[in-house]
Structures are given as structure tokens and as C-alpha cells.
Amino acid sequence: MPRSNRRRRPDPAGDDSFERLLAGWKRSEMRRGVEWTVQPVGAAQALKEYTCPGCGRVIEPGVAHVVAWRADGVLGDQADLAARRHWHTHCWRIG
């Protein structure tokens, strides 16, 4: 199949990292009376090293995991997103 050389239209939502993060597949979960937004990160998208708050161990680049942030914070979406944490999937499930 021939390659298309046409330019793609820019995304109307913009390329802002906040918008890209919210555009992915995510879900809401209740934990101890607090609503959390949880978004999985696939191995191909895991490019940096993070420390899991559940076990204190490193999440290596290339390891699938989840990102969680409060969904009901009083300071707004931007502040909640800035306080997000990367968890091992297993640590999030048992936490």
C-alpha cells in the first residue's frame, strides 16, 4: 500500500501533556472514601524510572504500571494531576 504524503491535521485538543494524559484510557476508583483516577501505562510508553509509593521499589523503564491521582481534590484538575504517582500494577491493586 502506498504511503500517504498528506499532512495530518493538528489535534484540535492540542498537544498539551495534560490533555494527552486525560485523553488516554482511564477509570475512576474509590479507595478508603477517596475517588482516584487511574490510568494504565503500557510497557512501550513507560520511558522513565519512577519509585512506587506502595513498595518503595523502582519501576524500571519498559515496565507496564499505573498512574493514579485524586479525582476529587479541592485545588482543581491541574493540581491533582501534578500530584499523580506511578505505581506497580500489583501494588495499586493491593494498596
Rank of each mutant, 00 (worst) to 15 (best):
G54L: 03
S17Y: 12
D72R: 01
M30I: 13
G76R: 08
E49A: 15
Q78H: 11
I59P: 09
G24K: 05
F18S: 06
K26C: 08
P40G: 12
C52H: 10
A43V: 09
A64Y: 13
K48F: 13
R85S: 08
T51C: 05
A46Y: 07
C55Y: 05
E29R: 06
Q39H: 09
E49G: 12
A79W: 13
P61Y: 10
R85K: 10
E60S: 15
K48D: 15
R27E: 00
G76E: 05
Q39V: 10
D16A: 14
G95C: 13
I94N: 02
W69L: 00
G62H: 06
L75K: 14
R9H: 06
R32I: 00
E29I: 08
R9K: 14
R31S: 05
A82R: 12
M1D: 11
R6E: 08
A68C: 05
F18E: 00
A79S: 15
A71M: 00
R27V: 02
L75W: 07
H88Q: 12
K48Q: 15
A82M: 08
G56C: 02
T89C: 09
P12W: 12
M1N: 09
V41Y: 02
W87V: 06
N5W: 12
R7S: 09
A83T: 03
A13Q: 08
G42M: 09
R27D: 00
P2F: 13
I94H: 06
G76H: 08
R84M: 04
V74S: 05
A13T: 10
V67M: 13
C55H: 01
R7W: 03
L22M: 12
P61M: 08
D15H: 05
G56S: 03
D11Y: 00
A13H: 08
L21K: 01
V66Q: 03
C52T: 11
A83G: 07
W92L: 05
A44T: 13
T37S: 10
P40W: 09
G54C: 02
G42E: 14
R57F: 14
A64D: 10
G14K: 04
D80H: 04
R32T: 03
H65V: 07
R3E: 14
P53S: 13
I94G: 00
W69H: 02
T89L: 13
